[in-house]
Design a binder for these strands. Structure first.
Lengths: 333, 333
DNA sequence: CGAACTGAAGTAATCGATTTCTGGAGCCTA
DNA sequence: TAGGCTCCAGAAATCGATTACTTCAGTTCG
């Protein structure tokens, strides 16, 4: 690889001049600048990003650390992040923490070591340790789940979404709704459960049925199985995430339960497949793309230093999309 | 952030000794080594990865550049890559080229600039320019789609998969199968089309019906619409990717066509939702996880220098999974 | 006319690690 | 006792850029 000194030799100037010309600093003789550009093009010179980062103490990539690549919610966020980052000239490195604190820590370390310009993180737990980022002065924006630190964040009104989903189930005529939520340490799991509980309590003398499980397909299957094995099984399910819902569907199928007739179901996250299963799945949709876009926006402002000192906390709203899986009438005629 | 000279001062030794102690070189007085480790721990020292990479001319991260994060096929690959990379002590930076040559070029540049230890790429086109990686001496493994360069690769027998899918459609009693495939520049799109054509030709006097479209949901919808608007519409569809299939389903629904009765359908890729739509979707499953794992394995060997000089080309097989969407009987009783 | 200023180039310090080179201490051997 | 080894630590070079500082020529102005 050609380096800056090669370009300097080729153009017959000093390395400082090459650097200045290529970064279009003021006060460079245009004629020299042209010569430098020609030499650089001829040699196929590309500045070594590592050396540049070392000197500048920052690079033009940001890290996006998400909880689970295979969850469409997070990949939709990714799109939002990429679009606004790219517009500001930043590249996005995606890191899959895979709902695992150890992997998350690894990627936070990588982010620090690689001196990324900023990090967007969906923390595995509220207690995730981001102290090294602060130490390295790397801006951070947190998404989806809160952190026990005063940092910029973009969240969603999960509780309200869960409450309206549960109310919808009740309004539709189901009488014994249960909640399948994520692991106890996940704040979103807690909030969605809270929303469910609130709705159930408002309706009076209803049992509070819920189980915690991993935010994964197998977690949903296990949770559904547990609930349905109970002495008095629920007749409707509110599921806290789309991945789990696939597991739930599996379990319902295994047991031959017909959705809309034997059991009602509504889930968080409007996965791309939701309209196409049978019956079409009612959902609480999260504005995933916007979460990503807003988070990236906040991060860009922090990186540029145009952000106010105090933390900013955005909370976006969910949308209840009623299809058929939550309706009692379906399949009865 | 504490740096190596701080540790050296704290431990009362030179920076060279600190470096040697921390990288456990031979010939370091154990007592000094202990003192260095203690000092490093006390200061919370972590070597600056940038500086280290600059000197060592390589880092311990690899880049995985995929065509589309929102495609479950690629996220499954990601899992495979991560598992084996992690086992060898490498972190994976995921880059979403988004079926866009410009973005792909950007990420290839980033990979070069950041001096990653290696790259796994699913190239947008066979002509994608990877010359810079060769120049920078960064090992490359190509997945899913071939490249006009002699590099290690892990592919799938797409043609055979497509052929068996089409044959299955024909065997099931459909008489006018069509193929919805990806854009012409995508090799996988071509191969899947070839497989379809081969099957159709073997069966004699059948029309060859196919349309190219982007490997996306809207692409599938558009293609389906076009085919179904034809004078003599197909009675079965072989779709080249799961994303497109969602679009196809949308279009079929819009037109009120009943799968299994009015039209048969089979698709490439066993998406997680495939068993749950109605009727359950027959698919040609790709061994996505294995593709990733094998590619990472090849890459690790290249990085370690234990790989043979000549290129290695693996081609894995697909599996036909017959569910119900492809069967003629469904819905008739 | 000389001091002060400006523009544009080069020299060298710098970022933070790794690694080569250099040299001193201790030991062995002829 | 001199010469040759080995072990180990520090000094300094190195990776490839950016940038503070220096230098010099040409201009402006009192």
């Amino acid at each position: 690889m050609a380096k800056i000194s090669d370009v300097a030799r080729e153009a017959g100037v000093s390395v400082a001049t090459v650097s200045r010309a290529l970064n279009d600093h003021p006060n460079v003789n245009p004629e020299y600048a042209d010569r430098v550009r020609a030499a650089a093009a001829k040699l196929g010179y590309r500045p070594n990003g590592i050396a540049r980062s070392l000197r500048r103490q920052s690079s033009d990539v940001i890290a996006l650390i998400i909880s689970d690549v295979s969850n469409p919610f997070f990949t939709a966020i990714t799109r939002g992040v990429e679009d606004v980052a790219q517009r500001s000239g930043y590249s996005v490195l995606l890191c899959n923490a895979d709902e695992d604190s150890a992997k998350e820590a690894t990627y936070l370390r990588v982010a620090e070591q690689e001196q990324v310009a900023g990090v967007i993180l969906s923390p595995h737990m509220a207690g995730s340790d981001v102290s090294r980022l602060r130490g390295a002065n790397i801006p951070l924006v947190v998404i989806d789940r809160p952190l026990n630190e005063p940092v910029d964040s973009v969240m969603v009104h999960s509780r309200e979404g869960a409450e309206s989903a549960t109310n919808h189930l009740l309004d539709a005529g189901w009488t014994r709704p249960a909640c399948i939520t994520g692991p106890e340490e996940a704040a979103t799991a807690q909030e969605r459960l809270q929303g469910y509980l609130e709705a159930v309590r408002q309706h009076g003398n209803l049992d509070e049925l819920f189980v915690h499980a991993p935010f994964r397909q197998h977690g949903g299957a296990r949770a559904a199985s547990e609930l349905l094995d109970a002495e008095v099984a629920p007749d409707a399910l509110f599921v806290a995430n789309a991945q789990m819902t696939l597991g739930v569907l599996d379990e319902l199928k295994r047991r031959g339960l017909r959705i809309g007739r034997d059991i009602g179901i509504i889930t968080f996250d409007d996965a791309p497949w939701a309209p196409f299963i049978s019956p079409p799945m009612s959902v609480v949709a999260q504005p995933a793309y916007d979460i990503g876009a807003q988070a990236a926006q906040l991060l860009m402002e922090r990186i540029r230093g145009t952000a106010p000192a105090e933390r900013r906390q955005l909370t976006l709203s969910t949308t209840l999309i009623v299809r058929e899986s939550s309706q009692r009438s379906w399949g009865m005629r």
